[in-house]
Amino acid sequence: MLAEITRQDTRAERTRAELAQQTQVGEALVRGLVRAQLALALRLSLVVAIGLGGLPWLFAIAPALGRTTIAGVNLPWLLLGVASFPFLIAVGWAYVRLAERNEQDFTDLVQRPER
């Protein structure tokens, strides 16, 4: 058990050294991680841009939507005043999960014993 930990430590140290010295391998790995994280952030921004950002436009071209009521409350009030917040939180939650998974993949990749 102890030996196992030590071996992992040295391996992580070696990888870290490799990354820090900016060998071509290390550099390519970091670029890949940055690209993956950025793509994730952009994809989720797109979800918000369409899901929320589309609303003013939708209300503008389809005024009937604004007049629709649910339980006596107009739809725009419900969507903006209530539903938008759980939506934002859900997107945030998905981001944290996926970003951590990207980082885990990266860690696994650089810590693989034989590369």
Partner: peptide, 24 residues
């Protein structure tokens, strides 16, 4: 009225943008 509901939505969504692009 309804048009200014974007203030609270935006004040909250600002934290999502912060989370996606900046926090870590």
């Amino acid at each position: 009225g309804v048009d200014v509901l974007w203030y609270p939505v935006g004040f909250a969504a600002g934290y999502l943008a912060l989370l996606l692009f900046v926090a870590a």
